[in-house]
Design a protein around this nucleic acid. Sequence first.
DNA 1: CTCCTAAGGGATTAATATGTTCCGTTCCGT
DNA 2: ACGGAACGGAACATATTAATCCCTTAGGAG
Lengths: 217, 217
Amino acid sequence: MAEEENRSSLSGRRAEAQRNNGRILDAARAVFLADPEAPIAKVGVHAGVGISALYRRYPSKDHLLRALAEDGLNRYIADLETALASTDGPWDTYVACLERVVDGQSQALAQRLAGRFTPTPELTALAMRAGSLAETLFDRVRRSGELRDDISEADVTLLLEMIAVIELPGADGGAALRHRYLALLLQALHAPAEAPLPGRPARQADLAARWRSAGNS
Amino acid sequence: MAEEENRSSLSGRRAEAQRNNGRILDAARAVFLADPEAPIAKVGVHAGVGISALYRRYPSKDHLLRALAEDGLNRYIADLETALASTDGPWDTYVACLERVVDGQSQALAQRLAGRFTPTPELTALAMRAGSLAETLFDRVRRSGELRDDISEADVTLLLEMIAVIELPGADGGAALRHRYLALLLQALHAPAEAPLPGRPARQADLAARWRSAGNS
DNA sequence: CTCCTAAGGGATTAATATGTTCCGTTCCGT
DNA sequence: ACGGAACGGAACATATTAATCCCTTAGGAG
């Protein structure tokens, strides 16, 4: 019973189980990214495992979705922390960070999973931590003066969500275009502004509303 | 029996029916814009009519969706034709047109309805007509030299789809923010370019793939 | 004034989609 | 050899929802 290890290389059935852990999460990410309403069986097919293998790990679809969300948030947080630790110029660091975030599609995942599972306090805490890090990073860029000053952090969040929507069939899945449009937006975000933007900057409160669930147990 | 008229102002029951025509389409637009997978009953509730009133006009959900799509395309085409008829500067005309398109959400409607109903040849023809008009308008701007030259028309289409995704709860529904981000993008699209964009411009072929249906009768 | 019929309301139905359980099987580890 | 963890996938229960059906209402023609 006392094998609380996940050292790599266990043997046989044990190893298969561990491999499946990753394969299932990967498959779930791919499947739910492509179709947030996909039935759970699709994840099994994509992962090449049966339904039992899913239910052995996650007591319900809700749990699986939570695990996915947590995984996505952690990736997002990792990207932010990398950026915060960087010693390059604030603007370049920010650009690199946004590129990684767009690539990782953690934003897209969160967007599509929103409201589709019941958030736990832990997840909420994680999300708040991510938000806090993002704000810190943003403030650093803001102070560097390289960002046009009529843009809020919530604006950037929404712009990233916009980009995350670009999705095309094909091997690349639109990643190249997402980069392209991110670059386009970044040129517009880079100071100095050609002209002030109409309307008011988005506020965090506007965003918060979409984190309400319509959930189950 | 020979009352093939829909002159305004009929009386009584006849008038109610005609009013309902519009109310149903309006309700359907609002409902399916908010949730493309909404059940048809929701449209009835939103319109303040029963299910019968819906089925009297449209033999099936598919027909209703088609009508909605056609309506949206027509609005889009009207916006394009207005722009093509304008004698103002090409750039300003283009900007005004895009603003109207974003406001009308015809783009958003098409995007969300895509693949959810079986397209008829007539609809396909309408769509091609819209595409042709859009291209003509785009070429005019392109030739004016006010547009950065590493952007394709398909790029603009995708950028509009990106914007259409912005949707917030509240009376305004995010319209102000959509304007805001359109303005931001337009500043980036306006020549001269700060730096060339990475990747290749999107091609029409990339877009076409999403117009396949998964349909019924 | 009276009948006829267009128009509508909304419960009911029939079909489908899908989350979850259950049972039999395989094969590792001891 | 044996026990049981891991699994595959059929079976089940439920929820969703498009479409139908029947009954009520009330214009409008004669």
